[in-house]
């Protein structure tokens, strides 16, 4: 193995599981998540010489977010695929009584994808607003707006007092 390969392999060992979780939270499908993470990591391998000393984690996250927060079909798919977003509150409320953790994950997966991505990056990955904006390719103001709206929706889906106190 070359030095490049060794460094890359170490990065994969340390970060693959977390990146797979990130992709899952964006798409809600483990197989899709694994496919996207593999694609992103292979792109990272190609670019390793350029990004190894920078922020390879951010590079991979950006690829994952771009693939899963599909920009090109946004106008059309938002209208077709958003349907479940509006039918879920009752369903979630039933789950909540059984399993609080499941409720939060399912509620998160019902958010519009950019709101979901902003929430995941800000509160699960713990990224500052500026880095979240870079991953999503938008302004910091847009991130704050997405986060605020996402949290507002989450509060409607999950009636948990802790969530209600979170600032957007």
């Amino acid at each position: 193995m070359t030095d490049k390969d060794t460094e890359f392999a170490q990065f994969v060992t340390e970060r693959a599981a977390r990146l797979r979780g990130f992709a899952y939270l964006l798409c809600g499908d483990w197989h899709r998540a694994e496919d996207v993470v593999q694609t992103a990591l292979l792109k990272l391998y190609r670019a390793w010489g350029r990004v190894r000393t920078g922020a390879p984690d951010a590079y991979v996250r950006r690829i994952i977010a771009t693939v899963l927060v599909d920009q090109h079909r946004l106008a059309w798919f938002r209208r077709v695929k958003v349907t479940a977003d509006h039918s879920l509150p009752e369903e979630v409320a039933v789950d909540e009584r059984a399993d609080q953790r499941l409720t939060l994950t399912r509620a998160l997966l019902r958010l519009p994808k950019r709101q979901r991505a902003a929430i995941v990056l800000r509160y699960w990955e713990d990224l500052p607003v500026e880095q979240t904006a870079r991953v999503l390719g938008c302004s910091t103001g847009a991130v704050k707006n997405l986060t605020m709206r996402g949290l507002t929706t989450l509060r409607g889906l999950v009636t948990d007092p802790v969530l209600e106190s979170i600032e957007g």
Binding site: M1, D5, F8, A9, Q10, V12, T13, A16, A17, R20, G21, Y24, L25, W30, E34, V37, Q38, L41, L42, Y45, Q100, R101, L102, L104, T105, L108, I119, Y123, W124, D126, L163, I166
Partner: peptide, 24 residues
């Protein structure tokens, strides 16, 4: 949020086929 999601992911994640050797 982070802790709740981490617990859920840990419990729900299926085995992964991603390996450092395979990807390299």
């Amino acid at each position: 949020i982070r802790d709740a999601l981490d617990r859920q992911l840990d419990a729900a994640a299926p085995p992964s086929g991603l390996t450092s050797g395979g990807l390299t």
